[in-house]
Amino acid sequence: MTSSSQYAAIGVHDSIWTGRRVRLRGLEPKEWQRFRDNDLNTTSQRLGDRVHPPRSNAGYEKWALEQSTRPSSDEMWLVIADINDDRPVGSICTNRLDPTSGVFWYGVGIFREEQRRGYATEAIRIVQRYMFGERRYTKCQAEVHGDNAPSLGLHQSLGFVMEGRLRKAVFHESGHQDLIIFGMTVDEFRNLR
């Protein structure tokens, strides 16, 4: 592991990918176990997406290797690492990119034991700063399951606007849930400062 003092010595704190609490970075292949262990939490899987079938250790190792060697593009999957000890605390991705209209979507997930520490807030802001400021996108969107109260509160506190509700659009153990669509324009983002 690299310590925060080592990062300071190499200027990482001057990076667009580094905040006060987190650093966004690529996955190291050896970190597959941390993500496997997180995937064992069914509640976390439901709140983020859906429950996925178990994967073998070899499957996780292959996935981690593929993630770690993925070519650079606007469609990213990044580790959210604690700035103090570089341990993974979650991940954030961009997807459904539409450069013509300037819209991108993102998803964020924080490991259960790491939640409520400001990691997601900072990671989202870093990705927005990059996509709006460096890649010229003009709108950021996210989907949140209607029963995910923490994520609904997070998006409201960040200044996202609830733009729509797809009724009974997702299903998991507790039944059908609404899917809430949040959006933020580049102008709204700039006005937050």
Results as ranks from 00 to 15, higher is better:
23 R>N: 09
24 L>K: 06
26 G>Y: 05
27 L>T: 05
32 W>C: 00
33 Q>G: 02
34 R>W: 01
35 F>K: 00
36 R>I: 02
40 L>G: 07
41 N>I: 10
41 N>L: 02
45 Q>W: 03
50 R>M: 08
51 V>R: 10
54 P>I: 00
55 R>M: 12
59 G>M: 07
66 E>N: 13
68 S>N: 13
68 S>V: 12
69 T>M: 06
71 P>N: 14
72 S>F: 14
73 S>R: 02
74 D>R: 01
77 W>D: 07
78 L>T: 06
79 V>A: 15
79 V>S: 15
82 D>C: 06
84 N>P: 03
85 D>E: 08
86 D>G: 01
91 S>M: 09
92 I>T: 13
93 C>S: 14
95 N>Q: 11
97 L>K: 04
97 L>M: 14
98 D>P: 13
103 V>R: 13
104 F>K: 09
107 G>W: 12
107 G>K: 08
108 V>D: 06
110 I>K: 07
112 R>Y: 05
112 R>K: 04
112 R>D: 09
112 R>V: 11
112 R>E: 13
113 E>F: 08
114 E>Y: 13
115 Q>C: 06
116 R>F: 03
116 R>P: 02
116 R>Y: 10
117 R>V: 00
118 G>I: 05
119 Y>W: 05
120 A>T: 12
125 R>A: 12
129 R>H: 14
130 Y>I: 11
131 M>T: 09
132 F>N: 10
135 R>A: 05
146 G>R: 11
147 D>C: 06
147 D>A: 11
150 P>W: 09
151 S>P: 15
152 L>P: 08
